[in-house]
Simulated scan of single mutants.
Amino acid sequence: MPRKAKTITIDGIDKKILRMLMEDARTPILEVARQVGISGAAIHQRLRKLEKAKLILGSKLIVNPEALGFGTRAFVGMYFDKAADAPTIIKLLKRVPEVLECHYTTGNWNVFLKVLCKNNDHLMQLLNTIQDITGVARTETFISLNQDIDRQVKI
């Protein structure tokens, strides 16, 4: 299970920097510095401080999955035979490239997955693969028709 992150305090300048880079992480540091009104070196120092405090976890390039033919996004609730099987099952799920996220949950399921497939036939094959894992009792699947909100925490 993930450890609880320490809460840190950020000032208005940090917020401006974060908002700009959350909008476009490729914004040049000198452009951020110009708009924020401090030196590029100060921006670098603040970013290092925020990275060290684990507020910034990194930056990444986002690929449009639909451009690669992945048109079916689904969520899969998984029921295990025994909760004690979870570490083994999760280890096997990490080998399945279609599984984008895996969350331990409260409620009905032991874990809840976010998966990405090319189409419904591909999803069916994936579900068979998941259901064949020893210790998986059953699954419950929800196909996403559209994603209208995709955002980060507000700074």
Rank of each mutant, 00 (worst) to 15 (best):
V32G: 04
V32R: 00
V32T: 04
A33L: 09
A33P: 04
A33G: 05
R34C: 05
Q35M: 15
Q35C: 09
V36H: 00
I38Y: 07
A41Y: 07
A41G: 01
A41P: 00
A41K: 09
A42K: 14
A42C: 04
I43L: 06
I43G: 02
I43N: 03
I43R: 01
H44M: 13
Q45Y: 07
Q45D: 07
L47K: 01
L47R: 06
R48Y: 03
R48V: 01
L50W: 00
E51K: 14
E51F: 07
K52A: 03
A53F: 01
A53S: 11
K54F: 05
L55R: 01
L55F: 01
I56D: 08
L57N: 11
G58K: 11
G58L: 12
S59A: 04
S59R: 08
S59T: 11
K60C: 09
L61R: 06
L61K: 12
L61D: 03
I62K: 15
I62A: 15
V63Y: 15
N64Y: 04
N64G: 02
P65G: 03
P65L: 04
E66G: 09
A67Y: 09
G69W: 09
G71S: 12
G71K: 13
T72K: 08
R73I: 05
R73M: 07
R73T: 11
A74E: 14
V76D: 02
G77W: 12
M78P: 03
M78F: 10
Y79G: 01
Y79I: 14
Y79Q: 12
Y79C: 02
Y79K: 14
F80G: 02
D81T: 11
D81K: 07
D81G: 07
K82F: 13
K82I: 07
K82P: 00
A83E: 13
A83Y: 13
A83H: 11
D85W: 03
P87K: 12
I89L: 12
I90F: 15
I90G: 02
K91Q: 13
K91F: 10
K91P: 02
K91H: 15
L92Y: 10
L93W: 07
K94D: 08
R95F: 05
R95E: 15
R95Y: 11
R95D: 13
R95L: 08
P97S: 06
P97F: 11
E98F: 12
E98D: 12
V99L: 09
L100C: 13
L100H: 04
L100V: 08
E101L: 00
E101K: 08
C102T: 15
C102R: 04
C102K: 01
